[in-house]
Write a protein that binds this DNA or RNA. Structure first.
Lengths: 95, 95
DNA sequence: TTGACAGGCAAGCTGTAGCTTGCCTATGGT
DNA sequence: ACCATAGGCAAGCTACAGCTTGCCTGTCAA
């Protein structure tokens, strides 16, 4: 609920990998995310673990879920990350 | 050392308050930060707690420390936050 | 040189984040 | 009707993040 959790949500490496995966291929199911995390990101967590991560991402507003039959598709929404961008003055270029 | 820790560093509310404080008034000492955190941000952590937070921020590259006599001044550096900005496509405006 | 002040070091405590395990629900194919 | 598949729920475990406490070091002023 609190937007504050956006910072916490991206604090975990597995959740960042989930966002990476959805950024590359949006609208995946839980099982798809699990298999692609193991094969492409070397993350071997259980299905339930990934499900809990998706819950946290959803509460932070970073992932939107949509049920269709027995499938549940997950879509990334990066707009809450503006909370990070807008909070501090980030220089344009790295030196 | 790993840039990866930038995400973890900003995951804590107290550390974000420290960055807020340094963004408003750069080059503060540990004691200054402590007192201003309590008076202005309602954070009553001990001096050692804040010191540990500053260590984490320093290791993430978000804070640079500079000793001068018995004082140690702390300066914020928001460039590592580009790791957040550059990782995912953040929409320009919130809807 | 003595004491006050700014800071550092290290050990210990506690809540909780992340994960697993086990079982349950529900949708769809055959 | 049956069973495989996609997902949900809830309890339990464990490592560690954040904090405290206590003491030590170093700098400056009198």
């Amino acid at each position: 609920m609190p937007v504050d959790d956006v910072f916490v949500a991206i604090g975990d490496a597995t959740r960042r990998a989930i966002l990476d995966e959805l950024a590359e291929r949006d609208g995946q199911t839980l099982f798809e995310i699990c298999t692609r995390l193991t094969t492409r990101h070397g993350i071997g967590s259980s299905r339930q673990a990934i499900s809990q991560h998706l819950d946290i991402l959803a509460r932070a507003g970073l992932v939107r879920a949509e049920r269709n039959g027995r499938y549940k598709f997950h879509y990334a929404d990066f707009r809450p990350l503006r909370a990070v961008v807008d909070r501090w003055p980030i220089p344009e270029e790295k030196l």
